[in-house]
């Protein structure tokens, strides 16, 4: 199908306008973060920073707790994703390949537990962590995030394993592998893209959390994650929007970059995990 010139122009114009409109908040976040504080209280607003203030970022990095909070966010996300993935990979493989008594029920429960409201789960977790003395510790967050990542990752990986023909590990077993060896030497290498996508999702889930972090870490400022930091900035520096936006951009950047570079795998994983 050939388009006329007019149709092409219209199509491109629509794409540009729609993208511009939908991505404006991200653009505005970047522009604000670079604007001098005085420019924020001027009408009309500046849509392009005449002299970008990089000092906002250097200040944020060297004179606030922001780097530490970013580090905490990353640490929690990495550890909880790693632990969750470890058990999820095995469970997903088991659910995908073995017919077991109760296997279906476990699978169904895992699917259903994706639906548990976090605002309800947090109440007993609060009690448990308090009695275990985990309040204010990053471990409380790691465990809480695992409650979300394990069911999610198990279901997503099961979908991925289902798409790998069973003959592959049968061949490996005939070739002399134990079922365990077949999993590690054949199935896992073959599912590397799926594993990467699942890990990234787990990371995103944990990184984006605000509910658990705010509740369990409230008093332990040094253990805060980036998200609590930003939400608190919003209250404290009521008018220093350039600082708040700079911090926000720092918190959003890792995930946005991961999304931009790994979009193909992420989208594949997302649709496989929930569409199936």
């Amino acid at each position: 199908m050939k388009r006329t010139l007019l149709q092409s122009i219209l199509l491109y114009a629509t794409v540009i306008v729609v993208c511009g409109f939908l991505l404006f908040p991200i653009y505005w976040m970047i522009i604000t973060s670079l604007a001098p504080a005085s420019a924020l209280r001027s009408f009309p607003p500046q849509f392009w920073p005449a002299n970008p203030q990089w000092s906002t970022y250097t200040n944020l990095i060297f004179n606030t707790d922001m780097p530490r909070w970013l580090f905490n966010s990353a640490l929690v996300a990495i550890v909880s994703t790693a632990i969750s993935l470890l058990v999820s990979v095995l469970a997903a493989y088991s659910l995908s390949r073995y017919t077991m008594k109760g296997g279906e029920a476990v699978g169904l429960f895992i699917l259903m537990s994706k639906m548990l409201p976090a605002t309800m789960l947090i109440i007993p977790l609060f009690g448990i962590f308090r009695s275990l003395g985990l309040m204010g510790s990053l471990w409380s967050l790691i465990i809480a995030h695992a409650t979300a990542i394990v069911p999610f990752a198990t279901w997503m990986l099961k979908g991925y394993f289902d798409s790998i023909p069973q003959e592959l590990e049968q061949a490996a077993q005939v070739d002399g592998c134990t079922p365990w060896g077949a999993l590690f030497r054949v199935i896992l290498p073959v599912s590397a893209p799926g594993l990467a996508a699942t890990a990234l999702y787990g990371f995103v889930l944990s990184w984006a959390d605000y509910l658990y972090a705010r509740t369990f870490l409230a008093s332990a400022t040094h253990n805060w994650t980036a998200n609590i930091g930003i939400a608190t900035f919003k209250g404290e520096y009521q008018t220093d929007w350039n600082v708040i936006m700079a911090a926000s951009l720092l918190a959003a950047l890792p995930i946005m970059l991961a999304y931009l570079f790994l979009q193909r795998y992420l989208v594949g994983g997302l649709t496989a995990g929930s569409g199936k």
């Binding site: 930003i230 939400a231 936006m245 926000s248 951009l249 959003a252």
Partner: peptide
């Protein structure tokens, strides 16, 4: 999709 909810809200 890749912007954390808190960041989106603050923006």
């Amino acid at each position: 999709w890749a912007v954390p909810e808190v960041v989106a809200v603050v923006t």
